[in-house]
Design a protein around this nucleic acid. Structure first.
Length: 346
DNA sequence: AAGCTCCGCAACCGCCCCGGG
DNA sequence: GCCCGGGGCGGTTGCGGAGCT
């Protein structure tokens, strides 16, 4: 492997910079500036190539550099900008004063690695809950504004006899709580069952299904580190290691209502309205917006390489980090025996 | 305590662009 | 128009510390 032309000299030193070298570089740049980087090593008395000096100054030594952990605001900004510009780290860095492209790139790479590694612990569970075929929903005609009873069915569902449906327990009629029309902060239940997924890596207590509104049913087989596939009528949150239901406004741990229609380029978004409309989105062309009105914490993007959406969600995870994860939606829905793209397997 | 693995991050590498000769 | 060197940038490597067995 050849070196850059400016680094061909035998005497050029590589590797970590010593404090003495840093001091020499700082002293020189402070006094003279850096008009031509190729001249800096000689004039500063450094046995480094100009490029190395430039990198050291820009990424580490310059006085306006900001070090330390990224704040949540910075992290969100990075995610948003990455959505728009991709791996153009310098462009992203230009929006974060004091941060370098290198730092952001490193942060993103380690962050992403962390995100795509975590789904592997779900793989085993998914292999037992993978399903095939499409499904649709219907709402009951006797729905009232007072009670919102609903009925939902799974249609066109073709379970493999050897691979029992994780949804069987959820087919039926469930009452919904009465709305308090004076409470404007109360969440309005959807008029259809929504398809939610929970990372139940926190301990699931079967007792939790008996609390609150009893609308959330967790499969009896669900266990620690399991991925529960739940049909619920409206908001649900994972609280304190339990999965509970309620009219909570905390949606950090809730995934949007989405249905995989079998076409890897589409998802069906179940929207809030009395016709129970299903709005189909072409993710590849338009990108995707969460069904949640508060979608600050959720983001979907089209992953060109995997040909599926990336799915970002909050995780009340085993390590208690409550950090967000990213995973391809197809890997979560699972349409085959191995829903994970090979590149994501450990 | 020693060995091993994992991970963060500084630094390097190679490619591309641009400007001057 | 071509060549060459410098600067900028994204991808990648590998060192070293932390944590685990």
């Amino acid at each position: 492997m050849g070196h850059h032309t400016c680094c061909n000299q035998q005497k050029v030193k590589r590797g970590l910079w010593s404090p003495e070298e840093d001091e020499k570089l700082i002293r020189y740049i402070t006094a003279h500036g850096y008009g031509c980087w190729s001249e800096v090593p000689d004039k500063a008395g450094l046995q480094r190539c100009g490029k190395s000096c430039r990198l050291r100054w820009i990424n580490y030594l310059r006085p306006d550099i900001r070090r330390g952990r990224f704040t949540q605001e910075e992290e969100k900004l990075i995610i948003s900008l990455h959505e728009v510009v991709g791996n153009r780290w310098a462009q992203i860095a230009s929006h974060l004063p004091g941060r370098t492209d290198n730092e952001i790139k490193n942060y993103w790479n380690s962050w992403i690695k962390k995100k795509i590694r975590k789904p592997s612990r779900m793989q085993h569970n998914l292999s037992t809950t993978a399903f095939h075929g499409g499904y649709t929903f219907s709402t009951a005609p006797d729905m009232t504004t007072e009670q919102y009873p609903f009925h939902y069915e799974l249609l066109n569902y073709n379970p493999n006899p050897n691979n029992p449906s994780p949804f069987e327990n959820f087919v039926g009629t469930k009452p919904l709580p009465t709305l308090d029309t004076d409470d404007h902060h109360q969440e309005v239940p959807s008029l259809h069952p929504s398809f939610f997924m929970f990372d139940t890596s926190s301990v699931i207590s079967q007792d939790s299904t008996a609390t609150t509104t009893q609308l959330l049913h967790i499969p009896s087989s669900a266990s620690n580190s399991d991925l529960a596939w739940c049909f619920v009528d409206h908001q649900a949150v994972a609280v304190g290691g339990h999965v509970e239901m309620g009219l909570s406004t905390d949606i950090n741990f809730m995934l949007p209502a989405l249905v995989d229609d079998g076409d890897p380029h589409h998802l069906l978004e179940l929207t809030y309205n009395d016709q129970c409309l299903e709005k189909q989105h072409d993710l590849q062309q338009q990108g995707y917006q969460s069904t949640n009105s508060n979608n600050n914490d959720e983001l979907l993007s089209w992953d060109e390489s995997q040909q599926c959406p990336n799915f970002l969600f909050w995780d009340n995870a085993v390590d208690g980090s409550a950090e967000d994860e990213i995973a391809p939606f197809s890997s979560l829905v699972g349409t085959g025996t191995s829903p994970y793209p090979p590149s994501l397997l450990p």
